[in-house]
Simulated assay, not measured.
Amino acid sequence: MPRNGADPRTRILNAARTEFATYGLAGARIDRIAKSASASKERLYAYYSDKKQLFLEVLELNLREFASDAVLTDHDVPAFAGALFDHAVQHGDHLRMIDWARLETDGTWLPALEVMLGYRDEQVRRIRLAQAAGRVDASWEPAQLMTLVFGIASAWVHEPGVVLTNSGGSDSVAIAARRANVIRAIERLIAPSAEPAIN
């Protein structure tokens, strides 16, 4: 009977997500993935021609989950930033996969790249709608603002002192304070201003 009731391909994908997030493309080992998935290497290669194909499928799966998990709705950019922060905290492996892809592939990530670009373009469109509704400072160029929102929401995931010491990684009080600071920063960022933004 399949482990946890999952079919072999699902078990392989789940095992590969952990392996690639931990070791990257170069450091990952097919034998470890197969063993963790309770599957043979032959079964794995029946689904995926090579390790890179499996890596790219995991990357695309992660990005599709991200794109459905954190979406700008009701013109509420601070709430959107909070959702981005929550995803970064709960799915740090997704951000690590993006880092590995940036470092270890040649940039031909399609269709994973198409997923991310489509997601970004849709959120930028929604920022424009929020500006038209008077909820966001209209002096911001929407694509530039989107980048800043991402950067602020993921700041603690990438800040060297936090990353190297893993400080507050499981401290619910610290996480709640960081989330509140993200929302506060975004509220200030999008508030109407007399000064034009620098694009």
Score class of each variant (00 low, 15 high):
residue 127 I to P: 00
residue 176 A to P: 03
residue 196 P to I: 11
residue 66 F to N: 03
residue 31 D to E: 14
residue 193 S to C: 13
residue 62 N to W: 02
residue 32 R to G: 00
residue 33 I to N: 00
residue 141 E to R: 12
residue 102 R to F: 12
residue 175 I to Q: 11
residue 146 M to L: 14
residue 37 A to G: 08
residue 103 L to E: 14
residue 189 L to S: 09
residue 5 G to S: 11
residue 106 D to M: 01
residue 73 T to N: 09
residue 191 A to E: 13
residue 125 R to H: 15
residue 98 I to Q: 13
residue 8 P to D: 01
residue 179 R to G: 10
residue 187 E to N: 11
residue 83 A to V: 07
residue 42 E to A: 15
residue 161 G to L: 11
residue 23 Y to N: 15
residue 135 R to Y: 08
residue 43 R to Q: 14
residue 30 I to K: 09
residue 46 A to C: 06
residue 173 V to H: 13
residue 3 R to N: 13
residue 50 D to E: 08
residue 55 F to R: 03
residue 45 Y to E: 05
residue 43 R to E: 12
residue 107 G to V: 07
residue 18 T to A: 14
residue 129 L to E: 14
residue 143 A to G: 12
residue 123 Q to N: 10
residue 53 Q to D: 04
residue 31 D to V: 15
residue 164 L to K: 11
residue 36 S to W: 01
residue 43 R to F: 08
residue 110 L to T: 15
residue 192 P to S: 00
residue 32 R to D: 11
residue 9 R to Y: 05
residue 84 L to I: 10
residue 90 Q to G: 15
residue 102 R to H: 15
residue 182 V to K: 09
residue 161 G to E: 11
residue 134 G to D: 10
residue 156 W to Q: 10
residue 187 E to F: 01
residue 42 E to D: 13
residue 80 F to C: 05
residue 6 A to I: 02
residue 6 A to R: 15
residue 20 F to W: 04
residue 95 L to R: 08
residue 93 D to L: 00
residue 163 V to E: 14
residue 137 D to Q: 06
residue 117 L to P: 00
residue 27 G to H: 10
residue 17 R to T: 08
residue 77 V to C: 07
residue 186 I to A: 05
residue 22 T to H: 14
residue 163 V to N: 05
residue 30 I to L: 15
residue 120 R to I: 02
residue 44 L to D: 03
residue 163 V to S: 10
residue 182 V to T: 09
residue 68 S to H: 12
residue 145 L to K: 04
residue 84 L to A: 06
residue 52 K to P: 00
residue 188 R to M: 12
residue 135 R to A: 13
residue 53 Q to N: 06
residue 116 M to G: 05
residue 163 V to T: 14
residue 184 R to P: 03
residue 165 T to D: 13
residue 88 A to Y: 03
residue 62 N to D: 15
residue 114 E to H: 11
residue 88 A to E: 00
residue 82 G to R: 09
residue 187 E to M: 02
residue 169 G to V: 00
residue 112 A to P: 09
residue 170 S to V: 05
residue 92 G to C: 01
residue 38 S to R: 09
residue 35 K to M: 11
residue 13 L to Y: 09
residue 178 R to I: 00
residue 188 R to I: 10
residue 79 A to M: 07
residue 55 F to W: 06
residue 127 I to F: 05
residue 70 A to Y: 01
residue 96 R to V: 10
residue 80 F to R: 03
residue 128 R to C: 11
residue 110 L to R: 14
residue 109 W to H: 13
residue 57 E to P: 00
residue 174 A to E: 13
